[in-house]
Structures are given as C-alpha cells and as structure tokens.
Amino acid sequence: MKTSFIKKSLILSVALTVFSFMSAQKVRVAAAANLHYALEQIKKQYEHEHPNTTVEITYGASGTLIQQILNGAPYDFFMAADKDFPLKLQAKGATTGPIRTYAFGRLVMWSSETDLSKGLNSVLLPTVKRIAIANPTGAPYGEAADAVLKKYGLYDKVANKIVWGENISQTAQFAFSGNAEIGFIALSLALAPQMKGKGKYYVIPATMSAPIEQSCVLVKGWERNGEAARFMQYILSAKCNAIWEEYGYTK
C-alpha cells in the first residue's frame, strides 16, 4: 500500500517535470557584450512576466557572434552592437524578417584615476601609458573609438599605447583592473553597478562620435521557436525603455 503510494507520487512528479519541460520555452540570444548588464535586467523582467520562458544569453563581440551563427550555433535572436553586423548576417542569408534598431549607445572614455576633464585630449596626458580599445574588426565600439581618435589626429600620437581588447567587456576589464589608464567603452558598461563609482567617465560628444545604432534580427531557424519573435517584440516595446535609459541608451 505504502510502496504503491510512493510509486504513484514518483510517477506523477516525473510526469509533471517532463510536462513542465515540454511547455517551457527557451529563447537563445546572441548579444553584443555592451548589453551585458542592461539585458540581464530585461531578461529578469521578461522571465518574470513570462514564467514559462527562459532566456539564455551568450555575450561576445558582434564579430565573434556572427561567426558563431554562420557556423551553425543554435541562436534564435541576434542583438548586435551596430547595424552592420546584422546586415552582414542578412547578406549571408542567415536571417529572417527585418532588421530593427532597439537602442542607440554612446562611446565613453573610462578611467579609474586619470583626470578626464580635458576630454578626448586626455589620452595625451603623460600619466597615460596604456589605452584600451576593443578590437575594431569585431567590436563596433572599438571601431567608433578607433575612428574618433583618427578623426581628431590623435591616433598616431598614441598608437604605441593602445592595447586591443577582444570585446568591449574585456576592454572595460583592462581599464577597470588598472592595467590600462584609459579605456574606450560603452556608456552602458560605465553605468553598470560593477563599475559605477570605481572611476570617472567622459561621454564623447555626439558631434564627435555619433551615437551607435544597435540593431537586432531573428536568426534563420528561429521559426522552430515562436517565443523568439515575442522576445524581439518585447525588446522593441516601451516596456524596456526604463532599463535602456538606466544604462544610458537612447531610443
């Protein structure tokens, strides 16, 4: 009698677990590294509103991510740090549906100790021995930093001080750990709880470096997962505005 009760409840619990797994939806997102903190909050909010859905996010340089997608990595949704990478992916026939812009991000200079009041020219200070920039081939924020230094004739003067981060997070970590005095990073990272108060940042004025248009697109094959489209709609909706704003993005 007793054993059959245990058996029954065991079977029931196994059945329930299996059932809940089957009904649980999963959205796999490939996201640019600058989104790290903001997107974690959006994920939390989304999962709270949609308890049956889990959002799995992989962060990396946009270049790394499209490389992975083109080689068959199972992502449903790609959130890039610019518009070019989604376009590249589209050109290779790896996307479905339109490319949509979800936010504009800003490039900042970040430093734990160096005085940034001279703006961009702070890179010339003698105390600055290393300047961290994300690798421009894969990271749009690195590309923007590279471009602004070249535009104002500073690049050649500091070329021997530049160290290249693999993505924008590693670049931030180079500056955060003090191994580089100045890091060119995304405003969203400078505003992250981990970095806030640990240093100063200077937002490169929009006239010098235009806000970076960050776009997203569904990856071909997402159709097996209707939840991905719903997540994309959510990202674009007004429900996320407060979070975008908190991390310095504009719409």
């Binding site: 270049g63 790394t64 961290a132 690798n135 081939t137 894969g138 160290v163 693999e166």
Partner: peptide
Amino acid sequence: VLMVGGDIPGVTRMASIAIYDQAQAL
C-alpha cells in the same frame, strides 16, 4: 596571452590569437 597580451600587432599578437581574430573577421 589573450588575457594579458592585449593583442598588440608586432608585440604581443601571437599566431594563435591572429587565427582567432581573422576567423572572427571572416
């Protein structure tokens, strides 16, 4: 090397890192 090198061409960029960079840039 990826973590402490900083990927500086001619100084700390090793072939193994260059492969990663180039594959990333397609």
